[in-house]
Design a protein around this nucleic acid. Sequence first.
RNA 1: GGCCACGUAGCCAAGUGGUAAGGCAGGGGUCUGCAAAACCCUUAUGCGCGGGUUCGAUUCCCGCCGUGGCCUCCA
Length: 482
Amino acid sequence: MRLTNTLSGRVDPLDISRGEVGIYVCGVTPYDVAHVGHAMSLTIYDVLVRYLRWPGNPHGGLRVTFVSNYTDVDDKLIQRGHELERDPLELASANIDAWEREQQALGLLAPDVRPRVTCEIPGIIATIEAIVAAGAAYATPAGDVYFRVRAKPDYGKLSHRNIEDLRSGTRGEPGEGKEFPLDFALWKAAKPGEPAWPSPWGPGRPGWHIECTTMAQRYLGTTFDIHGGGVDLIFPHHENEIAQAEAAADGQTFARLWMHNGMVQRDGEKMSKSVGNVVTVEAALDRWTPDAIRLFVLNSQYRSPNNLTDEAMAAATRGVERLATALAQAPAGAPTGVNPEPYRARFVQAMEDDLATPQALAALFDLARAINRARDAGERVAEAQIALRELAGVLGLSLAESRAEELARLDAGAISRLASQLDVACSGKDAAQTVDALLERRQTARAERDYALADRIREALTGLGVIVEDTAEGPRWSVRRD
RNA sequence: GGCCACGUAGCCAAGUGGUAAGGCAGGGGUCUGCAAAACCCUUAUGCGCGGGUUCGAUUCCCGCCGUGGCCUCCA
């Protein structure tokens, strides 16, 4: 598999010679609820992990250790806690709980490890001590510890800048005991009332970047395979992670490959609080299905910005239905049928080539069309349907929800009332049986050519979210997803 | 202001130095009592604008315009 590597600036092969892959993805700083940008980012790495683990990939499935953190103590969190008059650590914890419920609803795999900064303080202090010992950091009288950027001549190699360019862009930051404007905090001395932990430099908390260095190396080793996150993290966050890790480990490589996903835009504009167009995960789940959100994300290349519009989401919603429809019951047919192998090969080829999910999806849509066509012709499609479900599963698309989940959306009371209006026997205990009874009544009406009644029943059911389709085998119904 | 991406049909979005995947929407048709779903056909002679290189550019180069990212917190 080849992936675009920000560090090298090329599309590099992923080294799978060890048979296992370690992946670290920067998670959120939980000072607020999660938005669709967070969902997009995790969805991309979720698909990468699913694909690498998939037995159908050319390597037969790899062992993957997936780590994604929570930065549950930092300046922003403290500020927000102050505004809301809440304890910042408690605020972080509450936002993490909500976000984890949303991740589950979005069908995101739980990372193998979800470390939190507040549980990793001793390790972070040890990393800082190693950096200080290596001469790449210094403590100030105030109790802060700064990374000495000029001790790292290749600083800037990830974001492809050099120290001089960066310095010229710096707007006169106050000294605070820094030797050099670009030096950044590894440890921040606590002001009164701020969360603090004891350290060799006095009470304080970790700086922003050090936690990821420490947690990634603790769970994945000094050197690991893939480090991911949004493009907005390249500088300074990831640049600084590299600087810290290499300083602490005598120049040993930190992550071999750096992946960065593009940002979500809303109607062509940046999504931000100041514009007032932030779509929270909660709002998105309220409006669109998890599969539709996922299809929207995967329909564009992960590195490109992705424009969230109502029309695009409607298209994604219909697209999911199209794929799901291809999985619908087919009559057992003749021995001829659809061979899914060419589609599977296209899918794999696309995924191997820098996680080209748009092209992988195109293969799935083509397979769906082939299935529908063959089914219309009365051919066997079972193998192809199994393949479609499997490949969709690699992308994390569930497609077919369970019958129980579908039936749970039925408005049993309204259906019961409809049955009594039409004088149809209602078992009173099972809405699905009542729907069946209503459709039997409609079939009778159709047989008697009483189409007015037949249409009335169908329209009434449609109004209740029950979609009726007449097929050669009789009527089929499903519950609309809103 | 500096650095870096991107700009493809009504919408979302792939892609390539030799003539534009896929999805949605639209139009026509098949099927159906009518629908729905599905299937078939169709929808950019054109890939922001202007130059240049080339036998040939949407794909390479230059300029301009627009959007976005980073330079300060951000998936």
